[in-house]
Design a protein around this nucleic acid. Structure first.
Lengths: 244, 244
DNA sequence: TTACTTAAACGCATATTGCATATATGTCAA
DNA sequence: TTGACATATATGCAATATGCGTTTAAGTAA
Protein backbone atom coordinates (compact mmCIF):
# COMPACT_ATOMS: atom_id res chain seq x y z
CA UNK A 1 0.00 0.00 0.00
CA UNK A 2 1.06 3.62 -0.33
CA UNK A 3 2.36 5.74 2.52
CA UNK A 4 -0.74 7.94 2.32
CA UNK A 5 -3.01 5.04 2.96
CA UNK A 6 -0.81 3.89 5.74
CA UNK A 7 -0.89 7.21 7.54
CA UNK A 8 -4.57 7.63 6.86
CA UNK A 9 -5.49 4.35 8.41
CA UNK A 10 -2.67 3.86 10.89
CA UNK A 11 -4.08 3.93 14.37
CA UNK A 12 -2.34 1.69 16.89
CA UNK A 13 -5.41 1.58 19.09
CA UNK A 14 -7.27 -0.09 16.28
CA UNK A 15 -5.08 -3.18 16.32
CA UNK A 16 -5.05 -4.66 19.82
CA UNK A 17 -8.02 -6.87 19.16
CA UNK A 18 -6.38 -8.64 16.26
CA UNK A 19 -3.89 -11.47 16.51
CA UNK A 20 -2.16 -13.74 14.02
CA UNK A 21 -1.72 -17.42 14.76
CA UNK A 22 -0.57 -20.50 12.91
CA UNK A 23 -2.54 -23.74 12.91
CA UNK A 24 -0.94 -27.01 11.98
CA UNK A 25 -2.34 -29.94 10.08
CA UNK A 26 0.00 -32.71 11.26
CA UNK A 27 -0.71 -35.34 8.68
CA UNK A 28 0.54 -38.89 8.56
CA UNK A 29 -0.61 -42.37 7.62
CA UNK A 30 -1.91 -44.96 10.06
CA UNK A 31 -2.99 -48.32 8.69
CA UNK A 32 -2.82 -46.84 5.22
CA UNK A 33 -5.35 -44.18 6.13
CA UNK A 34 -4.70 -40.44 6.16
CA UNK A 35 -4.58 -39.38 9.78
CA UNK A 36 -4.38 -36.01 11.49
CA UNK A 37 -3.12 -35.30 15.00
CA UNK A 38 -5.58 -33.33 17.13
CA UNK A 39 -5.88 -32.09 20.72
CA UNK A 40 -8.97 -32.08 22.90
CA UNK A 41 -9.98 -28.69 24.28
CA UNK A 42 -10.51 -28.51 28.03
CA UNK A 43 -12.13 -25.07 28.24
CA UNK A 44 -14.67 -22.88 26.53
CA UNK A 45 -15.28 -22.19 23.78
CA UNK A 46 -15.62 -25.56 22.08
CA UNK A 47 -14.79 -27.39 25.30
CA UNK A 48 -14.43 -31.10 24.61
CA UNK A 49 -14.12 -30.50 20.90
CA UNK A 50 -10.98 -31.42 19.02
CA UNK A 51 -8.62 -28.84 17.58
CA UNK A 52 -5.55 -28.55 15.41
CA UNK A 53 -2.43 -27.56 17.36
CA UNK A 54 -1.58 -23.90 16.92
CA UNK A 55 -0.01 -20.87 18.52
CA UNK A 56 0.52 -17.16 18.24
CA UNK A 57 3.07 -15.80 15.83
CA UNK A 58 5.92 -14.21 17.74
CA UNK A 59 6.70 -10.54 17.53
CA UNK A 60 9.88 -11.07 15.50
CA UNK A 61 9.15 -14.42 13.99
CA UNK A 62 8.41 -15.38 10.42
CA UNK A 63 5.18 -17.30 9.82
CA UNK A 64 7.12 -20.41 8.88
CA UNK A 65 9.31 -20.13 11.98
CA UNK A 66 6.17 -19.96 14.10
CA UNK A 67 4.82 -23.07 12.41
CA UNK A 68 8.12 -24.87 12.98
CA UNK A 69 8.19 -23.82 16.63
CA UNK A 70 4.67 -25.04 17.24
CA UNK A 71 5.50 -28.30 15.52
CA UNK A 72 8.53 -28.80 17.72
CA UNK A 73 6.92 -27.69 20.98
CA UNK A 74 3.62 -29.49 20.60
CA UNK A 75 4.74 -32.60 18.80
CA UNK A 76 8.47 -32.85 19.28
CA UNK A 77 8.95 -33.06 15.52
CA UNK A 78 12.18 -31.51 14.33
CA UNK A 79 11.78 -31.78 10.60
CA UNK A 80 8.89 -32.44 8.26
CA UNK A 81 7.66 -31.30 4.90
CA UNK A 82 6.05 -28.01 5.88
CA UNK A 83 4.13 -25.78 3.49
CA UNK A 84 1.77 -22.88 3.91
CA UNK A 85 -1.77 -23.93 3.11
CA UNK A 86 -4.22 -21.04 3.36
CA UNK A 87 -5.14 -18.19 5.65
CA UNK A 88 -8.44 -18.14 7.53
CA UNK A 89 -9.70 -14.83 8.81
CA UNK A 90 -13.47 -14.79 9.24
CA UNK A 91 -14.11 -12.28 12.05
CA UNK A 92 -16.06 -14.69 14.24
CA UNK A 93 -14.05 -17.83 13.73
CA UNK A 94 -12.85 -17.47 17.32
CA UNK A 95 -15.51 -15.96 19.62
CA UNK A 96 -12.94 -14.52 22.04
CA UNK A 97 -11.21 -12.13 19.69
CA UNK A 98 -10.37 -11.52 16.08
CA UNK A 99 -7.80 -14.08 15.06
CA UNK A 100 -6.31 -14.48 11.61
CA UNK A 101 -4.81 -17.92 11.31
CA UNK A 102 -2.27 -19.02 8.74
CA UNK A 103 -2.64 -22.78 8.30
CA UNK A 104 0.42 -24.89 7.59
CA UNK A 105 0.38 -28.42 6.29
CA UNK A 106 3.01 -30.70 7.86
CA UNK A 107 3.53 -34.08 6.23
CA UNK A 108 4.96 -36.63 8.66
CA UNK A 109 6.59 -39.91 7.82
CA UNK A 110 6.02 -42.86 10.12
CA UNK A 111 9.00 -42.04 12.33
CA UNK A 112 7.90 -38.46 12.91
CA UNK A 113 4.31 -39.54 13.40
CA UNK A 114 5.08 -42.08 16.12
CA UNK A 115 7.61 -39.73 17.71
CA UNK A 116 4.90 -37.11 18.02
CA UNK A 117 2.50 -39.56 19.66
CA UNK A 118 5.20 -40.65 22.11
CA UNK A 119 6.26 -37.11 22.97
CA UNK A 120 2.79 -35.65 23.52
CA UNK A 121 0.24 -38.06 24.96
CA UNK A 122 -2.53 -35.52 24.41
CA UNK A 123 -2.23 -35.79 20.66
CA UNK A 124 -4.83 -38.09 19.23
CA UNK A 125 -4.50 -39.67 15.80
CA UNK A 126 -7.78 -39.10 13.97
CA UNK A 127 -8.60 -40.90 10.76
CA UNK A 128 -9.77 -38.58 8.02
CA UNK A 129 -12.86 -39.49 6.05
CA UNK A 130 -12.75 -37.42 2.90
CA UNK A 131 -15.45 -38.17 0.34
CA UNK A 132 -14.41 -38.12 -3.30
CA UNK A 133 -17.26 -36.04 -4.63
CA UNK A 134 -17.67 -32.54 -3.22
CA UNK A 135 -14.77 -30.54 -4.45
CA UNK A 136 -14.29 -28.24 -1.48
CA UNK A 137 -15.94 -30.90 0.67
CA UNK A 138 -16.53 -29.59 4.13
CA UNK A 139 -18.30 -32.95 4.20
CA UNK A 140 -15.07 -34.20 5.73
CA UNK A 141 -15.11 -36.03 9.04
CA UNK A 142 -12.53 -37.39 11.46
CA UNK A 143 -12.88 -40.47 13.64
CA UNK A 144 -10.96 -41.97 16.52
CA UNK A 145 -9.80 -45.58 16.71
CA UNK A 146 -13.24 -46.72 17.82
CA UNK A 147 -14.69 -45.15 14.70
CA UNK A 148 -16.51 -42.45 16.65
CA UNK A 149 -16.83 -39.10 14.93
CA UNK A 150 -14.80 -36.34 16.58
CA UNK A 151 -16.28 -32.85 16.62
CA UNK A 152 -13.75 -30.32 15.43
CA UNK A 153 -13.52 -26.89 17.08
CA UNK A 154 -13.66 -23.51 15.38
CA UNK A 155 -13.38 -23.72 11.59
CA UNK A 156 -10.92 -26.58 11.81
CA UNK A 157 -13.06 -28.88 9.70
CA UNK A 158 -12.85 -26.36 6.90
CA UNK A 159 -9.09 -26.06 7.36
CA UNK A 160 -8.71 -29.82 7.22
CA UNK A 161 -10.87 -30.06 4.11
CA UNK A 162 -8.70 -27.43 2.45
CA UNK A 163 -5.61 -29.45 3.34
CA UNK A 164 -6.93 -32.66 1.82
CA UNK A 165 -8.08 -30.83 -1.25
CA UNK A 166 -4.67 -29.24 -1.73
CA UNK A 167 -2.88 -32.51 -1.16
CA UNK A 168 -5.02 -34.35 -3.70
CA UNK A 169 -4.43 -31.64 -6.24
CA UNK A 170 -0.67 -31.73 -5.86
CA UNK A 171 -0.30 -35.48 -5.70
CA UNK A 172 0.39 -36.29 -9.32
CA UNK A 173 2.35 -33.29 -10.41
CA UNK A 174 4.45 -32.74 -7.33
CA UNK A 175 6.39 -35.19 -5.22
CA UNK A 176 4.58 -34.53 -1.94
CA UNK A 177 3.76 -38.21 -1.55
CA UNK A 178 7.32 -39.03 -0.53
CA UNK A 179 7.08 -36.84 2.55
CA UNK A 180 4.83 -39.45 4.13
CA UNK A 181 7.29 -42.30 3.55
CA UNK A 182 10.61 -43.29 5.09
CA UNK A 183 13.77 -42.58 3.13
CA UNK A 184 13.66 -45.98 1.48
CA UNK A 185 10.36 -47.42 0.37
CA UNK A 186 8.82 -49.96 -1.97
CA UNK A 187 6.64 -49.08 -4.91
CA UNK A 188 3.74 -50.76 -3.15
CA UNK A 189 4.18 -48.38 -0.18
CA UNK A 190 4.27 -45.40 -2.52
CA UNK A 191 1.15 -46.57 -4.27
CA UNK A 192 -0.56 -47.07 -0.91
CA UNK A 193 0.17 -43.45 -0.06
CA UNK A 194 -1.27 -42.21 -3.31
CA UNK A 195 -4.35 -44.37 -2.93
CA UNK A 196 -4.87 -43.25 0.65
CA UNK A 197 -4.67 -39.56 -0.24
CA UNK A 198 -6.61 -39.65 -3.48
CA UNK A 199 -9.15 -42.05 -2.05
CA UNK A 200 -9.27 -44.34 -5.05
CA UNK A 201 -7.54 -47.47 -6.32
CA UNK A 202 -4.76 -47.13 -8.87
CA UNK A 203 -3.53 -49.49 -11.53
CA UNK A 204 -0.26 -51.06 -10.45
CA UNK A 205 1.82 -51.29 -13.65
CA UNK A 206 0.64 -47.87 -14.80
CA UNK A 207 1.49 -46.27 -11.46
CA UNK A 208 4.91 -47.85 -11.47
CA UNK A 209 5.66 -46.56 -14.96
CA UNK A 210 4.49 -43.04 -14.16
CA UNK A 211 6.73 -42.78 -11.11
CA UNK A 212 9.73 -44.03 -13.05
CA UNK A 213 9.04 -41.80 -16.06
CA UNK A 214 8.74 -38.71 -13.91
CA UNK A 215 12.25 -39.40 -12.68
CA UNK A 216 11.19 -39.11 -9.06
CA UNK A 217 12.65 -42.40 -7.84
CA UNK A 218 15.84 -44.44 -8.07
CA UNK A 219 16.25 -48.14 -7.28
CA UNK A 220 18.67 -48.90 -4.46
CA UNK A 221 19.44 -52.49 -5.42
CA UNK A 222 18.43 -53.65 -1.93
CA UNK A 223 15.20 -55.32 -0.90
CA UNK A 224 12.75 -55.04 1.95
CA UNK A 225 13.00 -57.64 4.71
CA UNK A 226 10.71 -59.58 6.97
CA UNK A 227 8.07 -60.53 4.45
CA UNK A 228 6.80 -64.07 4.14
CA UNK A 229 6.78 -63.72 0.37
CA UNK A 230 8.91 -62.22 -2.32
CA UNK A 231 10.41 -58.96 -0.98
CA UNK A 232 10.13 -55.84 -3.11
CA UNK A 233 12.99 -53.61 -4.15
CA UNK A 234 13.60 -50.48 -2.11
CA UNK A 235 13.62 -47.11 -3.86
CA UNK A 236 14.93 -43.67 -3.01
CA UNK A 237 13.31 -40.33 -3.69
CA UNK A 238 15.31 -38.26 -6.18
CA UNK A 239 15.99 -34.93 -4.61
CA UNK A 240 16.25 -32.97 -7.84
CA UNK A 241 12.97 -33.43 -9.72
CA UNK A 242 10.97 -30.65 -11.41
CA UNK A 243 10.14 -28.07 -8.81
CA UNK A 244 7.44 -27.27 -6.31
CA UNK B 1 -5.04 -23.81 19.66
CA UNK B 2 -6.20 -24.82 23.12
CA UNK B 3 -7.67 -22.49 25.66
CA UNK B 4 -4.61 -23.01 27.90
CA UNK B 5 -2.30 -21.75 25.26
CA UNK B 6 -4.58 -18.89 24.58
CA UNK B 7 -4.67 -17.76 28.17
CA UNK B 8 -0.97 -18.35 28.62
CA UNK B 9 -0.02 -16.19 25.70
CA UNK B 10 -2.90 -13.74 25.59
CA UNK B 11 -1.62 -10.32 26.35
CA UNK B 12 -3.35 -7.48 24.52
CA UNK B 13 -0.37 -5.21 24.93
CA UNK B 14 1.67 -7.63 22.87
CA UNK B 15 -0.42 -7.13 19.74
CA UNK B 16 -0.56 -3.42 18.91
CA UNK B 17 2.49 -3.58 16.70
CA UNK B 18 1.01 -6.15 14.37
CA UNK B 19 -1.41 -5.45 11.57
CA UNK B 20 -3.01 -7.53 8.84
CA UNK B 21 -3.37 -6.15 5.34
CA UNK B 22 -4.38 -7.42 1.95
CA UNK B 23 -2.33 -6.78 -1.17
CA UNK B 24 -3.82 -7.13 -4.61
CA UNK B 25 -2.30 -8.44 -7.78
CA UNK B 26 -4.61 -6.83 -10.37
CA UNK B 27 -3.75 -8.87 -13.40
CA UNK B 28 -4.91 -8.37 -16.94
CA UNK B 29 -3.67 -8.63 -20.50
CA UNK B 30 -2.37 -5.74 -22.58
CA UNK B 31 -1.17 -6.44 -26.09
CA UNK B 32 -1.29 -10.11 -25.27
CA UNK B 33 1.17 -9.66 -22.42
CA UNK B 34 0.44 -10.33 -18.74
CA UNK B 35 0.19 -6.95 -17.06
CA UNK B 36 -0.15 -5.89 -13.44
CA UNK B 37 -1.53 -2.59 -12.14
CA UNK B 38 0.81 -0.80 -9.75
CA UNK B 39 0.97 2.51 -7.86
CA UNK B 40 3.99 4.72 -7.38
CA UNK B 41 4.87 5.49 -3.77
CA UNK B 42 5.27 9.16 -2.88
CA UNK B 43 6.81 8.80 0.58
CA UNK B 44 9.34 6.78 2.49
CA UNK B 45 10.01 3.95 2.70
CA UNK B 46 10.49 2.90 -0.91
CA UNK B 47 9.60 6.38 -2.16
CA UNK B 48 9.38 6.37 -5.94
CA UNK B 49 9.14 2.59 -6.04
CA UNK B 50 6.09 0.83 -7.36
CA UNK B 51 3.72 -1.11 -5.16
CA UNK B 52 0.72 -3.36 -5.37
CA UNK B 53 -2.49 -1.72 -4.13
CA UNK B 54 -3.42 -2.82 -0.63
CA UNK B 55 -5.10 -1.84 2.57
CA UNK B 56 -5.73 -2.81 6.16
CA UNK B 57 -8.23 -5.49 7.00
CA UNK B 58 -11.18 -3.97 8.82
CA UNK B 59 -12.06 -4.89 12.35
CA UNK B 60 -15.15 -6.87 11.37
CA UNK B 61 -14.30 -7.72 7.81
CA UNK B 62 -13.41 -11.04 6.25
CA UNK B 63 -10.14 -11.19 4.37
CA UNK B 64 -11.95 -11.58 1.08
CA UNK B 65 -14.25 -8.65 1.86
CA UNK B 66 -11.19 -6.52 2.50
CA UNK B 67 -9.70 -7.58 -0.82
CA UNK B 68 -12.98 -6.76 -2.58
CA UNK B 69 -13.18 -3.39 -0.89
CA UNK B 70 -9.64 -2.46 -1.89
CA UNK B 71 -10.35 -3.60 -5.42
CA UNK B 72 -13.42 -1.40 -5.60
CA UNK B 73 -11.94 1.64 -3.87
CA UNK B 74 -8.57 1.69 -5.60
CA UNK B 75 -9.55 0.45 -9.03
CA UNK B 76 -13.30 0.87 -9.29
CA UNK B 77 -13.67 -2.78 -10.20
CA UNK B 78 -16.90 -4.32 -8.99
CA UNK B 79 -16.38 -7.93 -9.94
CA UNK B 80 -13.40 -10.03 -10.91
CA UNK B 81 -12.11 -13.51 -10.36
CA UNK B 82 -10.60 -13.12 -6.91
CA UNK B 83 -8.66 -15.82 -5.10
CA UNK B 84 -6.40 -15.90 -2.10
CA UNK B 85 -2.80 -16.40 -3.17
CA UNK B 86 -0.43 -16.63 -0.21
CA UNK B 87 0.35 -14.87 3.03
CA UNK B 88 3.57 -12.95 3.52
CA UNK B 89 4.73 -12.26 7.04
CA UNK B 90 8.46 -11.75 7.28
CA UNK B 91 8.95 -9.44 10.28
CA UNK B 92 10.90 -6.80 8.36
CA UNK B 93 8.98 -6.77 5.12
CA UNK B 94 7.66 -3.33 6.09
CA UNK B 95 10.21 -1.27 8.06
CA UNK B 96 7.53 0.77 9.84
CA UNK B 97 5.81 -2.01 11.71
CA UNK B 98 5.07 -5.69 11.65
CA UNK B 99 2.59 -6.31 8.86
CA UNK B 100 1.23 -9.65 7.80
CA UNK B 101 -0.18 -9.37 4.32
CA UNK B 102 -2.60 -11.74 2.69
CA UNK B 103 -2.11 -11.49 -1.06
CA UNK B 104 -5.11 -11.87 -3.36
CA UNK B 105 -4.94 -12.50 -7.06
CA UNK B 106 -7.55 -10.62 -9.10
CA UNK B 107 -7.95 -11.60 -12.73
CA UNK B 108 -9.39 -8.80 -14.85
CA UNK B 109 -10.92 -9.04 -18.27
CA UNK B 110 -10.34 -6.24 -20.72
CA UNK B 111 -13.42 -4.30 -19.60
CA UNK B 112 -12.41 -4.35 -15.94
CA UNK B 113 -8.81 -3.59 -16.82
CA UNK B 114 -9.59 -0.47 -18.83
CA UNK B 115 -12.25 0.60 -16.31
CA UNK B 116 -9.60 0.51 -13.59
CA UNK B 117 -7.20 2.62 -15.64
CA UNK B 118 -9.93 5.14 -16.35
CA UNK B 119 -11.11 5.33 -12.75
CA UNK B 120 -7.70 5.69 -11.10
CA UNK B 121 -5.13 7.61 -13.13
CA UNK B 122 -2.41 6.68 -10.66
CA UNK B 123 -2.60 3.03 -11.63
CA UNK B 124 0.12 2.11 -14.08
CA UNK B 125 -0.07 -1.00 -16.25
CA UNK B 126 3.24 -2.80 -15.93
CA UNK B 127 4.20 -5.60 -18.27
CA UNK B 128 5.40 -8.70 -16.45
CA UNK B 129 8.57 -10.39 -17.61
CA UNK B 130 8.50 -13.87 -16.14
CA UNK B 131 11.30 -16.19 -17.28
CA UNK B 132 10.35 -19.80 -17.93
CA UNK B 133 13.16 -21.44 -16.04
CA UNK B 134 13.40 -20.66 -12.32
CA UNK B 135 10.49 -22.31 -10.64
CA UNK B 136 9.91 -19.82 -7.86
CA UNK B 137 11.53 -17.19 -10.07
CA UNK B 138 12.01 -14.00 -8.12
CA UNK B 139 13.88 -13.30 -11.36
CA UNK B 140 10.65 -11.64 -12.41
CA UNK B 141 10.65 -8.02 -13.60
CA UNK B 142 8.03 -5.47 -14.56
CA UNK B 143 8.37 -2.76 -17.19
CA UNK B 144 6.41 0.32 -18.19
CA UNK B 145 5.32 1.12 -21.74
CA UNK B 146 8.77 2.52 -22.56
CA UNK B 147 10.26 -0.81 -21.54
CA UNK B 148 11.97 0.67 -18.48
CA UNK B 149 12.26 -1.63 -15.48
CA UNK B 150 10.11 -0.57 -12.53
CA UNK B 151 11.50 -1.12 -9.05
CA UNK B 152 8.94 -2.83 -6.85
CA UNK B 153 8.58 -1.82 -3.19
CA UNK B 154 8.69 -4.12 -0.15
CA UNK B 155 8.53 -7.81 -1.08
CA UNK B 156 6.13 -7.14 -3.91
CA UNK B 157 8.40 -8.74 -6.50
CA UNK B 158 8.21 -11.96 -4.54
CA UNK B 159 4.43 -11.66 -4.27
CA UNK B 160 4.15 -11.13 -7.99
CA UNK B 161 6.41 -14.07 -8.73
CA UNK B 162 4.24 -16.23 -6.52
CA UNK B 163 1.17 -15.07 -8.43
CA UNK B 164 2.60 -15.95 -11.84
CA UNK B 165 3.81 -19.28 -10.56
CA UNK B 166 0.38 -20.12 -9.18
CA UNK B 167 -1.35 -19.01 -12.35
CA UNK B 168 0.90 -21.10 -14.55
CA UNK B 169 0.33 -24.11 -12.36
CA UNK B 170 -3.44 -23.81 -12.49
CA UNK B 171 -3.73 -22.97 -16.15
CA UNK B 172 -4.29 -26.40 -17.64
CA UNK B 173 -6.29 -28.08 -14.95
CA UNK B 174 -8.49 -25.19 -13.89
CA UNK B 175 -10.45 -22.72 -15.97
CA UNK B 176 -8.74 -19.58 -14.68
CA UNK B 177 -7.86 -18.52 -18.21
CA UNK B 178 -11.43 -17.46 -18.91
CA UNK B 179 -11.32 -14.81 -16.20
CA UNK B 180 -9.07 -12.74 -18.43
CA UNK B 181 -11.44 -12.86 -21.40
CA UNK B 182 -14.79 -11.24 -22.19
CA UNK B 183 -17.91 -13.37 -21.91
CA UNK B 184 -17.69 -14.38 -25.55
CA UNK B 185 -14.32 -15.14 -27.07
CA UNK B 186 -12.68 -16.95 -29.94
CA UNK B 187 -10.42 -19.95 -29.54
CA UNK B 188 -7.55 -17.84 -30.80
CA UNK B 189 -8.10 -15.37 -27.95
CA UNK B 190 -8.21 -18.19 -25.44
CA UNK B 191 -5.00 -19.62 -26.82
CA UNK B 192 -3.37 -16.19 -26.67
CA UNK B 193 -4.21 -16.01 -22.98
CA UNK B 194 -2.69 -19.39 -22.30
CA UNK B 195 0.42 -18.56 -24.27
CA UNK B 196 0.81 -15.22 -22.52
CA UNK B 197 0.57 -16.77 -19.06
CA UNK B 198 2.60 -19.89 -19.68
CA UNK B 199 5.15 -17.98 -21.71
CA UNK B 200 5.40 -20.52 -24.49
CA UNK B 201 3.78 -21.25 -27.85
CA UNK B 202 1.06 -23.87 -28.04
CA UNK B 203 -0.05 -26.11 -30.86
CA UNK B 204 -3.31 -24.87 -32.30
CA UNK B 205 -5.31 -28.02 -33.13
CA UNK B 206 -4.17 -29.74 -29.96
CA UNK B 207 -5.13 -26.77 -27.81
CA UNK B 208 -8.51 -26.56 -29.48
CA UNK B 209 -9.21 -30.25 -28.86
CA UNK B 210 -8.13 -30.06 -25.23
CA UNK B 211 -10.46 -27.17 -24.48
CA UNK B 212 -13.39 -28.92 -26.15
CA UNK B 213 -12.66 -32.27 -24.48
CA UNK B 214 -12.47 -30.70 -21.05
CA UNK B 215 -15.99 -29.45 -21.61
CA UNK B 216 -15.05 -25.93 -20.62
CA UNK B 217 -16.49 -24.18 -23.66
CA UNK B 218 -19.63 -24.11 -25.79
CA UNK B 219 -19.99 -22.68 -29.30
CA UNK B 220 -22.48 -19.83 -29.59
CA UNK B 221 -23.17 -20.14 -33.31
CA UNK B 222 -22.23 -16.47 -33.80
CA UNK B 223 -18.98 -15.10 -35.18
CA UNK B 224 -16.61 -12.29 -34.33
CA UNK B 225 -16.90 -9.13 -36.41
CA UNK B 226 -14.63 -6.51 -37.87
CA UNK B 227 -11.88 -8.75 -39.14
CA UNK B 228 -10.51 -8.42 -42.65
CA UNK B 229 -10.40 -12.17 -42.99
CA UNK B 230 -12.54 -15.12 -42.05
CA UNK B 231 -14.10 -14.42 -38.65
CA UNK B 232 -13.83 -17.08 -35.97
CA UNK B 233 -16.69 -18.57 -34.03
CA UNK B 234 -17.45 -17.12 -30.61
CA UNK B 235 -17.47 -19.44 -27.61
CA UNK B 236 -18.87 -19.24 -24.09
CA UNK B 237 -17.29 -20.48 -20.91
CA UNK B 238 -19.27 -23.34 -19.38
CA UNK B 239 -20.06 -22.41 -15.84
CA UNK B 240 -20.33 -25.94 -14.51
CA UNK B 241 -17.00 -27.68 -15.28
CA UNK B 242 -15.02 -29.80 -12.81
CA UNK B 243 -14.20 -27.55 -9.91
CA UNK B 244 -11.22 -25.42 -9.10
C1' DT C 1 10.47 -80.13 -3.94
C1' DT C 2 6.23 -77.94 -4.20
C1' DA C 3 2.53 -74.83 -2.99
C1' DC C 4 1.80 -70.15 -2.19
C1' DT C 5 2.16 -65.13 -2.30
C1' DT C 6 3.59 -61.02 -4.04
C1' DA C 7 6.97 -58.47 -7.19
C1' DA C 8 8.17 -57.18 -11.58
C1' DA C 9 7.95 -57.52 -16.59
C1' DC C 10 5.36 -57.98 -20.74
C1' DG C 11 1.84 -57.32 -24.39
C1' DC C 12 -1.65 -54.99 -26.33
C1' DA C 13 -5.86 -52.13 -26.91
C1' DT C 14 -7.19 -47.48 -26.25
C1' DA C 15 -6.76 -42.59 -25.37
C1' DT C 16 -4.05 -38.40 -25.66
C1' DT C 17 -0.91 -35.34 -27.80
C1' DG C 18 2.09 -33.07 -31.30
C1' DC C 19 2.30 -31.70 -35.78
C1' DA C 20 1.83 -31.26 -40.76
C1' DT C 21 -1.51 -30.71 -44.24
C1' DA C 22 -5.85 -29.96 -46.43
C1' DT C 23 -10.19 -27.61 -46.75
C1' DA C 24 -13.55 -23.90 -45.60
C1' DT C 25 -14.98 -19.16 -45.21
C1' DG C 26 -14.69 -14.70 -44.72
C1' DT C 27 -12.61 -9.81 -46.73
C1' DC C 28 -10.98 -7.08 -50.30
C1' DA C 29 -9.30 -5.38 -54.63
C1' DA C 30 -9.23 -5.77 -59.59
C1' DT D 1 -18.03 -11.31 -60.43
C1' DT D 2 -13.89 -13.34 -59.55
C1' DG D 3 -9.69 -14.60 -57.58
C1' DA D 4 -5.91 -13.51 -54.18
C1' DC D 5 -5.31 -13.62 -49.41
C1' DA D 6 -5.51 -14.51 -44.46
C1' DT D 7 -7.21 -17.00 -41.05
C1' DA D 8 -10.46 -20.60 -39.19
C1' DT D 9 -11.51 -25.26 -38.96
C1' DA D 10 -11.06 -30.17 -40.07
C1' DT D 11 -8.35 -34.31 -41.05
C1' DG D 12 -4.69 -37.78 -40.94
C1' DC D 13 -1.03 -39.88 -38.78
C1' DA D 14 2.94 -40.85 -35.89
C1' DA D 15 4.55 -40.75 -31.21
C1' DT D 16 3.51 -41.02 -26.57
C1' DA D 17 0.93 -42.07 -22.47
C1' DT D 18 -2.43 -44.88 -20.06
C1' DG D 19 -5.38 -48.83 -18.53
C1' DC D 20 -5.41 -53.51 -17.74
C1' DG D 21 -5.00 -58.46 -18.11
C1' DT D 22 -1.35 -62.04 -18.34
C1' DT D 23 3.04 -63.99 -17.59
C1' DT D 24 7.32 -64.71 -15.37
C1' DA D 25 10.39 -64.12 -11.29
C1' DA D 26 11.68 -64.57 -6.55
C1' DG D 27 11.11 -65.03 -2.16
C1' DT D 28 8.89 -68.03 2.20
C1' DA D 29 7.24 -72.10 4.33
C1' DA D 30 5.59 -76.75 4.72
Amino acid sequence: MTQDDFLASYDPSAFPQLAVTVDLILLGLRNQAPTVLVLQRNAQPFEGFWALPGGFVGERETLEAAALRVMQDKAGIETAHLEQLYTFGTPDRDPRMRIVSVAYLALLNEAAFTAALRQNKALLPARIEAPLSHEDAVAISVRNEDDEVLQLAFDHAEILATAIHRLRGKLDYSPVGFALLPEQFTLRQLQDVHEAISGRALNKPAFRRRMQDKGWISPTGTREEGTSFRPAELFLFNDRPQGD
